[in-house]
Design a protein around this nucleic acid. Structure first.
Lengths: 209, 209
DNA sequence: GGGTGGATTGAACAGGCGTTTAGTCTTTGA
DNA sequence: TCAAAGACTAAACGCCTGTTCAATCCACCC
């Protein structure tokens, strides 16, 4: 039963959720009927995979460690040898949407918020007028760009090369990210200041989407 | 034939590329066989849609107009009443990957690079040590975060509400984006400077992925 | 030892898919 | 006016899908 679930996580991560039950069953060395017998339906199997992956992510206290890049968490997850398929599955889940995807992203948003707050307290990160909104913004940007990159380079997303791909991405974005994070993009403050003049201070930040 | 293609663009945009030929045919008021007769196969139909959408995007000189946010282009596309389905189709295409997606994103990357260069020349945007890499980075971040948002809120992506959704996203990210773009994220320059010490100046920027 | 229950299988079913084929209808051109 | 050509349809084909069902195997317990 666990072997079926593990095979499903790996196969879903590799091929997406359109992978067939018979393929998964063969991977696990069993029959399609047995998969249904254990999990009720394909949806039940996916639910079991979701619960398992989310449980691992929650139990392992994974933090976005690298320079504000929200993708750092996934990279960290992929680094742990045995968890590579889990990272792939999480990405597929985000592409498809659903409960696990929402929970996963919200988990990362909250993580980023704590991490940013710690940086602010330590004096290394500038305070924000809307800390929650900033954490959400940075998380969506980082994870979203990773998703887009994977969509455009599907050949690089085999279980074996996933860590390599993440490092390659990291190499490409580090300089622009560091530039943006330390020097900003605009030369003057007119755009921000004029926005702040027209919009009242955010009371607790914008609503959760 | 054009009506079939338009129906396919709309249906693919609404339901994704797993939409059935019979559904598209019914939308267009014809039969599945006729679709095959005209386009050879489902892949041929998708290719025709890709060509059409890319042609429109290329002919309309769309620019990323709003404050460096690469999603501005899609928003602009969606604003033009009749092109709403095209914007949705482009998003689905990016989720699925493939030629159109690559061409579309590369088009936006180049557009962003020109836009940023113009800003640098005008003295409103800071120069970068790697302008091409920065344009790519900002484009992937902006478009990717849009993709992720749409994945997590599939109920909001009907053709009617797409413009509304884009405006809602814009409201949420404007303040964090403006903060980041004018003030940066880090208080001091140590992370950037130490990175520049270890890595030699990028000769023409990192390689294209 | 017999039986009870869960694990497991292989075959079959119903439905959807893209595609093929044969044939009809409609339009066009000489 | 007749015929050729393309638009179009209805039905069927083969394949793949998730799911069901009856039967078998195997382990455990009284």
């Amino acid at each position: 039963m666990e072997r079926i679930r593990d095979a499903a996580v790996a196969r879903f991560g590799r091929d997406g959720f359109s992978a067939g039950l018979r393929t998964i069953a063969t991977d696990a060395g069993v029959t399609a009927g047995l998969v249904i017998h254990h999990f009720g339906s394909k949806e039940g199997l996916r639910q079991a995979c979701d619960d398992y992956v989310l449980g691992v992510i929650r139990s392992e206290k994974l933090r976005a460690a690298t320079s504000g890049s929200a993708a750092g968490m996934l990279a960290q997850l992929a680094e742990i040898e045995q968890y590579g398929p889990l990272a792939l599955y999480a990405v597929r889940s985000m592409q498809a949407g659903g409960e696990l995807a929402t929970a996963f992203v919200e988990h990362m948003v909250q993580d980023a918020e704590e991490y940013l707050a710690a940086g602010v307290a330590a004096g290394t990160i500038r305070p924000s007028r809307d800390p929650a909104g900033r954490a959400r913004y940075l998380t969506f940007q980082g994870m979203g760009s990773l998703m887009l990159w994977i969509s455009l380079h599907p050949e690089m997303v085999s279980v074996d090369d996933f860590r390599t791909a993440l490092r390659e991405i990291s190499d490409q974005i580090t300089l622009p990210a560091l530039e943006l994070f330390t020097e900003g993009l605009f030369v003057d403050r007119t755009m921000l200041d004029s926005y702040l003049m027209y919009v009242p201070d955010p009371p607790g930040g914008p609503a959760v989407p």
